[in-house]
Amino acid sequence: MYKIIVLAKQVPDTRNVGKDAMKADGTVNRAALPAIFNPEDLNALELALEIKDQYPGTQITLLTMGPVRAAEILREGMYRGADAGVLLTDKAFAGSDTLATSYALSCAIRKIGDADLIFAGRQAIDGDTAQVGPQVADKLGIPQITYAEEIVALKDRVIQVKRRLERGVEVVESALPVLITAHSTAPDCRPRNAKRLMRFKRATTLSEQHSAADDYLATHTAHPGLNITEWCAKDVNSDLVQLGLGGSPTKVRQVENIVFQAKESKVLSTADADIEWLMQELISQHTIG
């Protein structure tokens, strides 16, 4: 039996950036992008669930830091098999860079306590930084295994993991506790389970309960297990100086719209004559052929 924490982030779906994703002033229209469970965090959850399959009784807690709305992914994770969710939300976190984020997450992990394994995604698709996992491991003073593709073995508190590198694979071994980041080549997360869906769709955070109709409160008083834990900065004993914008060493100096140096381009149609002309042109310029 192990105690596992999975770090998950709700991200805008940058994979399907449509035409209305940008506003006229060149900034991102977050509202036009659906908010999703960061894909590699689902791989991370699956690795954790596989361990639970092998060791029933294993306790999986999903932890996310974000706005109140991020509780959506906690429920999603519970439908797929996570036992509990923790939402870390506070104005004090606003503007956090990866260092401030990992500090806040590490405080929450300490508060949850006694984790044997912490899983994270390799990277979140909104920034592709891949920094939060290793930085959380550093803050907790534990080793890390990045880019995990498969749990090869777990026995007697020693884990073997296959890592997917740019140019190859590696199997490494570590004693617990350890933080593992999941690569997209790890198994896909299992789908929602219908029974769990019925049970956890009413799981809510305190903030959600406050903004909802009265019968929510009644349900929750009757089923305390459906409460999603919600913590603010003070709850996890974090040092305010290290949080948010103030705790972030990186600052954005400037955001610039890029205006491409428009070339004088020649526009062709799909007509045979146009395509033949272009191929002849490329051949005669010795660009191809």
Partner: peptide, 18 residues
Amino acid sequence: YQIRPAFGGNIVATIVNP
């Protein structure tokens, strides 16, 4: 100046660590 394209579209962000 650490310059990188930023999220989503035609923008480039300049990041500094003062």
